[in-house]
Amino acid sequence: MMNEMRAALSIFDLTKTYSSGLAALKGVTLEVRQGEFFGLLGPNGAGKTTIIGIITSLVNKSGGSVKVFGIDIDQDFAAAKRLIGVVPQEFNFSIFEKVQDIVCQQAGYYGIARAEALVRSEKYLKKLGLWNKRNVAARELSGGMKRRLMIARGLVHEPKLLILDEPTAGVDVELRRGMWDFLAELNRAGRTIILTTHYLEEAEVLCNQIAIIAGGRIIENTNKRELLRKLDKETFILDSKAPIASILPLEDASFTLIDSTTIEATFGKKQSLNRVFEHLNSQDIIVESMRNKANRLEELFMAMVEE
């Protein structure tokens, strides 16, 4: 009971088989605690959007149970819905309606009186930089603005649990960073957030708890620190100052020449970087710059999903 009290979302043995026969979820069990910034990662078709669909009533589950802050959706879905805000992956607002109308209407659907809806829509449209677009038809917004509009709409009833399905897809880097700051601020203010994303850097920066789903099953669910600890190898791209003909081998490391001045170097996490550089230095290879080939979480994710 105490555990349930602390859980923002409890999913137990959730299954979903679509009428086409596709088994999208094969017994998912998951718990998201209050105040967490929870990342749900997985390849396309893994079942992320189906889980969100079931929690928000857009998809009928085949079996299992879902509780939102202890409220079973089979018992009182309306009460559970009041606690959830959702920002879907695809644009799902009327493109003919004005920005503020879309947000105010959503408030109305949650039983918030129009006067209050106007106040709240102003608050969130201002926070998301859309206030000057309030009287513009949604079709006239840029892709990034449309994403922000959906976030404002998802927040207008001030839910305790915010679910974001790929919220920064197609958003440019600067805007994405701005949205990260905004989401992190929401989380710091006490709101539980569940995020699905393709940008694993996003999950690494924002989430403190991460679950990985593949083939309709949860294959990992732990905190970010623990997850990254499982990463035993890292790959870097090194740029050499001068052209290189070949590189001598080194124990517990591998080097591949991508072109005459670019090296792909993979080595164990326990391998000292100094030792690698000394090895290269001894061959008169001067490294001018280096970067991660992929983000750390991405490497781990690929390894897990491929398994």
């Binding site: 928000t56 009533s57 857009l58 879905f77 309306a78 009460a79 819905k81 009041r82 959830i84 959702v86 879907p88 695809e90 644009f91 799902n92 607002f93 009327s94 493109i95 879309i102 209407q105 959503q106 659907y109 949650y110 039983g111 709409r153």
Partner: peptide, 13 residues
Amino acid sequence: QRNIEELLVSPTP
């Protein structure tokens, strides 16, 4: 346009 989802995710009976 899928904006029916705005209503479906809400507690509107």
